[in-house]
Design a protein around this nucleic acid. Structure first.
Lengths: 335, 335
DNA sequence: GACTATAGTGCAATCGATTGCATTTCGCAC
DNA sequence: GTGCGAAATGCAATCGATTGCACTATAGTC
């Protein structure tokens, strides 16, 4: 890159002091308009670009948001899960709209709890967005006590003392299952790992929908699967082999739902003829598959934008409350 | 976050000079082992974390890789295209393995060419990985002339003077179409926008496969679609309405292929009975849909890792050549 | 014309860590 | 006990930008 021009050189070229240059570049009212124009024009001639580290050091800020995606390998999650990736995309987009850079961190298991602190304390990021609270509620609470500069995506746990953004998981689950029951389905197989708070809440929704309909959910109808592990396919085959009866599937994520459909079809079951399937997330692929997937839209793009907005507001010191986004049932061909 | 401890405070607590602390933290051989241990223990007691900007300023480096994803909105690309997202995931993973941070930038159209320079010149990133060269070959050449610290993902254009990593697009296209022809298919509809270099090369592969088989590809059998825009569905319906005959589809991306299958099925065509479909990318969803998608695997995860490796090698001044990854035909149920 | 606000600029300290060079400490030989 | 080289440590300059304060023009007032 050509060679970096320093502010001192620019100042010399413009025949002023660096302090004036600095003020001019920051559009301070202390500098005469004419001087400003002069400096700006020379700056662009010389291709001057400010040195981020220097400014950040002095300003004690970084204009950067840290995005942390702590995976839970045991649950079969990988960074390539479309849900996470769409979330990354959404946050990246929103951050760049706001003029912030985004630093993405996918801590490995052993780093886990250290990664967040590192990003903040090293001054690399002004604030943090953490995707998912899987099994770390306690840590997140501790973190929440230490700093205000964090927003977490996930299910709203009552004891959380940090800012959470997430979809209304209970309502989402209820919508999904209500829909299934309305279609005359009676035995709904729940696919998902209740160890994850979000999933737990979605299951609550399932039970609620049953209660409202005057039914009770058979606890045998639970297949505890992570977030789309490859084992899901075979596990479901096993369930089918076992002869367990069910006429609907409510999966805690679209990836799980897609895998389930695949598995059902491979077994000769027709979707939605024999079994209706509802997913959760509304990832991009849900609409372009066959059968198109009925699912709960949790508005990922909005979620990303909202997290960025809330975080920036927190950074200015504003008090901010957790937020639950509404969910929406999207009916397609799988039910 | 508690409060940031500065190195000077740590030095005072340990009863040494900051220079000794600095050397101790960097494990310099100049410091006595005992002193090192002493300092490290106090550092961890106090929760000392180095201030990144300060170090970067002094060291003139940032231990950060910039990932730029310039979208081409006209082609219907969005950040949520699974291919990009999987690439982000792969690069994020590889970078963090190497101890580098990753700063993700999705420049909007008007920023475009400026974004790269900004990341490098501001010192935010030590090097850049750019995904896709769509329509910017000229700019990339200019950039390549200015700096060595860039690696681009895309098709290898002969006139490129920058380091490119990508799959062997011609060979990939050839493999895909050879497979179709081997299965007795004769009229292959190509879906993809040849304005993009990668797509152009994949089409070359298609023609090559025809040539080898002693055939010629009917130029009417081209449906120029971007990277999975929603219009693809309806455009394909229109083609079907028009009565144009074809018994196979080779799509330039999996998303296009998935959409095509969806569209065909909606039209009452059976895949692969009436029409065989081959995609390109082998994104995660390809294997868990019905019918599972036959596609060209371009090993996204490897690609990401290789780009990071090459970039880091370039940063150390090593000379590095462009790299073409092998592609592989993955046969599934759609053919 | 002297005098005081006020608008513009410059000076110099500062942010926190690194590093070349100077200095101290220590072990060992004589 | 003195001397000497090597091993440890400290001193102070430095990276590039920002900012409180001091200073100098300039305008306006009497």
């Amino acid at each position: 890159m050509a060679k970096r021009i320093t502010m001192a050189e620019l100042a010399r070229a413009a025949n002023v002091d660096t302090s004036t240059v600095s003020r001019a570049l920051n559009d301070s009212s202390l500098v005469k308009e004419e001087t400003k124009r002069h400096i700006l024009s020379i700056a662009s001639d010389l291709g001057y670009v400010i040195h981020a580290s220097a400014r950040n050091l002095r300003r004690q800020s970084s204009e950067t948001i840290g995005l942390v995606i702590p995976l839970v390998p045991e649950s079969g999650q990988t960074i390539s899960d479309p849900f996470f990736l769409e979330m990354v995309g959404a946050v990246a987009h929103a951050a760049s709209q706001e003029g912030y850079d985004l630093i993405v961190n996918v801590p490995s298991a052993e780093q886990q709890d250290g990664a967040e602190q590192r990003l903040l304390q090293t001054g690399r990021a002004d604030g943090l967005i953490i995707i998912g609270q899987a099994g770390r509620t306690e840590f997140l609470n501790k973190l929440g006590k230490l700093t205000e500069r964090v927003v977490v995506w996930g299910g709203s746990v009552p004891e959380a003392n940090y800012t959470v953004v997430g979809s209304d998981n209970v309502r989402g689950g209820e919508l999904a299952v209500e829909h299934l029951l309305n279609r005359g389905r009676e035995r709904v197989l729940f696919v998902g790992d209740s160890a994850l708070p979000e999933v737990q809440l979605r299951y609550e929704g399932l039970k609620k929908a049953h209660r409202v309909a005057g039914l009770e959910h058979d606890p045998d109808l639970i297949l505890p699967e992570g977030f789309g592990g490859k084992s899901t396919f075979t596990d479901l085959q096993r369930v089918l082999d076992s002869g367990l009866e069910f006429d609907a599937v409510f999966a805690a994520s679209d990836v799980l739902a897609i895998t389930a459909i695949h598995s059902l079809q491979a077994y000769g079951k027709h979707v939605p003829g024999d079994v209706s399937v509802v997913g959760y997330d509304n990832i991009g692929q849900a609409s372009i598959m066959t059968p198109a997937l009925t699912t709960i839209d949790q508005h990922i793009a909005d979620g990303g934008r909202i997290m960025v907005e809330l975080l920036l507001r927190k950074l200015t010191g504003t008090d901010v409350r957790s937020r639950t986004n509404s969910t929406e049932l999207v009916v397609r061909d799988s039910t």
